[in-house]
């Protein structure tokens, strides 16, 4: 077992502290009883209780969840198909353009993605709202899904698929009975990523949303622009807690899954 030198240990402690301290401070302040954010007025759940009555905020959270659920699911399906096409179909016509369209959105500034989406919806005279945000988020997230699933498929031991075919499974059955169960953890992880990306997105949603489809980040942004407030501290703390627990649970699950092998597929 190696031992960390004092310098390396200090670096790690400082680095982790830098990453986590702001979030910890945010959470601590969300329990501040005082209306003035900077004055400590003792511990209180007051601002959380306040949130329960904030209908527009809850509405926005509900819309965000719905957008994230639908777009993450659509992006996972489309992205997995795209990854299979890229890894397993060899050279097909237009493959270069296909690959470019999958990688380009990953580095495209959100402002431009949002702008171009909006211009499309205007060009075809679609009323903007829930579904336009879903389409925009699906497009952005499907590229992330494709990249993650593609990485898993590239690592995939081809002889497993050959063995299945050798034993009489057609290519379609082979995919369902062998490939899919084995890449399932990667697909689940990319669904989670797509969900988190959608839940998190402000810029693209701002461009593509319409009346009645204000997402949580848009709502938070409009409040936060005016300055720090105790209600926002509470909202943000809840989001952090939910996402944090989900991610830790998911990573534990994948670890157990990896240790036991994926669940049996019969």
């Amino acid at each position: 077992m190696r031992k960390l030198s004092a310098f390396n240990l200090a670096t790690l402690v400082l680095g982790i502290a830098f990453l986590y301290l702001p979030i910890v401070i945010l959470i601590v302040y969300s329990f501040n009883a005082s209306r003035l954010v900077v004055v400590w007025g003792g511990w209180s759940m007051h601002w959380y209780a306040e949130l329960a009555g904030d209908a527009p905020l809850l509405g926005a959270a509900f819309i965000s969840l719905r957008v994230a659920l639908v777009s993450a699911t659509a992006a996972t399906v489309l992205g997995t198909l795209a990854a299979v096409a890229l890894v397993r179909f060899g050279r097909f016509r237009g493959r270069l353009l296909f690959a470019a369209m999958i990688y380009a959105p990953l580095v495209m500034p959100e402002v431009i993605t949002g702008l171009s989406m909006l211009l499309l919806f205007v060009a075809i005279s679609v009323d903007r709202g829930f579904w336009t945000v879903v389409i925009a988020h699906t497009t952005m997230a499907l590229c992330f899904v494709a990249v993650i699933v593609q990485a898993r498929l590239v690592d995939f031991d081809m002889s497993l698929e050959e063995a299945a075919m050798d034993l009489g499974a057609s290519p379609g059955r082979t995919f369902m009975a062998v490939t899919l169960p084995l890449i399932l953890p990667a697909i689940a992880a990319s669904w989670m990523l797509a969900f988190a990306l959608s839940l998190d997105d402000l810029v693209i949603a701002s461009f593509t949303t319409g009346p009645g489809a204000t997402t949580l980040p848009i709502r938070i942004y409009s409040e936060v622009r005016l300055g720090v407030s105790p209600e926002m501290n509470a909202v943000c703390s809840i989001v952090v807690a939910v996402v944090g627990i989900a991610v830790i649970a998911a990573s534990l699950l994948t670890k157990i899954g990896a240790a036991r092998g994926a669940p049996a597929g019969n």
């Binding site: 497993l160 050798d166 169960p181 084995l182 092998g261 994926a262 669940p263 019969n266």
Partner: peptide
């Protein structure tokens, strides 16, 4: 109607 035994064995890790 031929079967193959693979060098890597290619056992399905998700099946018993």
């Amino acid at each position: 109607p031929v079967n193959m035994m693979f060098q890597s064995y290619a056992l399905f890790p998700h099946l018993t």
